[in-house]
Every structure is written in C-alpha cells, then in structure tokens.
Nucleic acid binder design. Structure first.
Lengths: 92, 92
DNA sequence: TGCTAATATTCTAATATACGAATATAGATA
DNA sequence: TATCTATATTCGTATATTAGAATATTAGCA
C-alpha cells in the first residue's frame, strides 16, 4: 500500500509491528541510545530468559530494525536503519 | 516498563501496536497530513468496508492515537496526540 | 413519529502471536 | 578433537488479532 507521497506503508507497518511489544521496544530504544549489545547482556538487563530475548531479536531482525554481527563467541546487535532511528528519537 | 529517561514504554508500544496494521497506519498518516475525515469517506477512499474501518478506528481511539467528534450525522476523526504526530512526521 | 444515513457492535472462524521449557547449533579455545 | 559458552530453534499451549457478515444504534429531518 502506498500513499500520495509514495511512502511505503507496509515497510513502516512492519517496523511498528516489531516495536509494538514492550520488550522489543525496550531493546530497540536502548540500542538507539547506548552502544550495541550482545544477547546475554540484554537477557540479564531485561530480566527476560535468553530464548525469549532471542525470539524477539529474530522478529526485530526480520523487520530490518536491527542488525547483528559476530564478535568472538557472541553476537552484537545494533540499529543502523535510519528510519528506525528517527522514529525512536521522537520518544520523550 | 520504564527506561533510564523515564519514558513510558508501554504507552509507546500501545501506539506502535495501533500503527502496526497497514490500514490503520494509512488512516493515521492521512489524518496527520490532510484535514480530519469522517468514516464513510475513509471507507470509500481506502476501499475497505465501513464496519472494518470502524473497528480499526476503535483500536486507534483506544490507543489514544485519534479522537473523534460528532458533526451533524457523521463523526470526524483527527489526530491531536503530539507524540503520534511527531512519529508520523518522520515517515518519508 | 417514522424514515434514512452514518456509524458502531457482535459473532464467528481463520490466523497470528507470545512464552516457557527443552533442545540444538555454532564458534572459540584448550 | 573435546568442551564450553553464547545464541538459536522447536514445540505446545494459551491468548490475541483479523475480517466479513449480520445487526444494532444514533442523530437528523420530513
């Protein structure tokens, strides 16, 4: 679905869907404010089991909200998508 | 759930959930760009049945994304929530 | 009052999401 | 290679979402 200004509504609705869960929004918000972060640190900080965090990360990845890269034996996640960064910057 | 800066994560995740459906995002985006709009005009413009539009409007209302007021025998919806307006302004 | 147009609600079935528990995999390093 | 740590996947169940169809409600007006 497209609007007048040729905005990709489906792309944005996918982003919003990914951000619509409190745990995922917290992960994304923190990644936008702080440095990148690995999975076990997130699990510890959030008090959420590692498999659950991993499931949420998969959803965020599939919506192109976050990207991950391996660093030694862990995987660091960060936000590169400028659309997502702009959205999260509005949060006050 | 709260973050460092005392942002209300639950409030925002509710907003994002409301915006996570293509039809609802289109409605909200159009209301943010154009003037307010009544239900049957939305139904016509979107090509979506009136009851379905009304259901989506209820979800947007409950998430405090839109507000409605009666004007004669129709109901006009608009966006007043500044947080929502700021989010939608980021869409390019 | 009775009719009409606009909007909202209810119901149902199909589909999607969430989460905990258990298990699997991948890569680093001894 | 064997093992350890970090991360991902699968499974089952409970719950939520979606959309269409039918119906109900509301307010304006003849």
């Amino acid at each position: 679905m497209k609007t007048d200004k040729d905005i990709d509504i489906n792309e944005y609705s996918e982003i919003f869907k990914a951000l619509a869960h409190p745990t995922r929004l917290t992960i994304a918000y923190n990644l936008s404010k702080k440095a990148e972060c690995n999975v076990s640190k997130m699990s510890e900080c959030l008090g959420v089991p590692q498999p659950t965090v991993s499931q949420h990360l998969t959803i965020l990845k599939n919506a192109n909200v976050i990207t991950g890269y391996r660093n030694g034996n862990q995987i660091c996640y960060k936000i590169e998508n400028q659309k997502v960064i702009k959205i999260l910057e509005q949060m006050v």
